[in-house]
Design a protein around this nucleic acid. Structure first.
Lengths: 191, 191
DNA sequence: TGTACATCAGTGAACGCGCGTTCACTGATGTAC
DNA sequence: TGTACATCAGTGAACGCGCGTTCACTGATGTAC
């Protein structure tokens, strides 16, 4: 499958962005294992070697995708936080929703594909930003002492675990987002 | 690395078990990606083709490992449940402990390596057994209505999320088991 | 107890695959004067 | 405004790798009579 039209110019113009978006499509279609330099190059209409003008190696491409992912994630959390008077509940639901909507990306972000995150300061920073947003949500929660780290971690772990169990098909027959609502709002299971 | 001594007999004797234990060692050493039929055969001192006398394909080997893993997991949960008057808390801690002790196995069991679990009735059954144990723990919990599915799921998701975040290096500097204790017992974060 | 023979569990060589990565190269671009 | 030249972003072919899997085969085992 070729995403881009054949080029007319020798130079691509914005190959880096094209490779990233091709890789992102691969991630969405087939998960982390489907992301390869060669296939991304193919879709961008370019030879495999050309990728090395823009990424030092495959890992650099994965890191770039993860950075992008955490950026989107932080934005989604922020949106849920700001649009609500129940920020923790809505952030929890948004967390699971994000994972369900972009399973490949979610796995890339949190999984072992990027082995050593500390090699990329940019990645560390965007992770810190996404995490901090989650923490600051905790601090405004009504029923919890501000900045209670145990409660913050509990909420995070709960939603992360729910997302993972859902992606990994351990909750067959349930709608993950409805489960997230039930857990976040301490309501009942529908059905 | 060769695990077994060179054979003296033409037939191996118990190649299936040898392959499984070699594969298990690979899993412990290098995670799911390190598990290959060829390397397992190498360690068992046997040609690659010999594996096909005992496993239909690679997926069958992975399924067998997962079955083994869920068996160990169920046993660990059962032990924690029976040894305690705070079964939920101790099962939670045991859950995280299991993941930390056997990260490769844990990932294989819950992750996407085994794509379609429904192809193996044996796997489905052992999963059901492990899950049911967790549920029955819920039912004896003092502070929760017996069989409350929301509370059961919440505990499960919380511990699973904590385990995953820990394995995926998202909680650097913390001891996952101590965090599990804090979350399970609703205590404070030490430090 | 001995023998013919089916069956089973291995061998060893080979297959095709797609991957990440490197290399010498060439076409296009941009800059200095 | 034109030209020499350095630099940049591509090409295309090739490398070695390890993998899962198949094939015709052979050595060992077990069973029927």
């Amino acid at each position: 499958v070729k995403t881009s039209k054949p080029r007319t110019t020798y130079h691509h113009g914005d190959l880096r962005a094209a490779l990233l978006s091709a890789a992102r499509a691969l991630l969405d279609e087939g998960g982390v294992p489907a992301v390869t330099l060669r296939e991304a190059a193919r879709r961008a209409g370019v030879s495999p070697a050309a990728t090395y003008r823009h990424f030092a190696d495959k890992d650099a491409l994965l890191v770039a995708l993860a950075v992008q992912g955490f950026g989107e994630f932080a934005a989604a959390m922020k949106a849920a936080f700001e649009a609500s008077r129940e920020p923790m509940a809505d952030m929890g639901v948004a967390y699971v929703q994000f994972a369900v909507d972009r399973p490949g990306l979610f796995r890339l972000m949190f999984g072992p594909a990027v082995a050593d995150r500390s090699k990329s300061p940019e990645l560390l920073e965007v992770i810190a930003r996404a995490t901090q947003l989650f923490d600051s949500g905790m601090k405004s929660r009504k029923d919890v002492a501000p900045g209670d780290p145990v409660a913050a971690l509990r909420s995070w772990a709960t939603m992360h675990g729910l997302a993972m169990l859902a992606l990994d098909n351990m909750l067959p027959g349930y709608d993950p987002v409805m489960l997230a609502q039930a857990l976040a709002k301490k309501g009942r299971l529908p059905g």
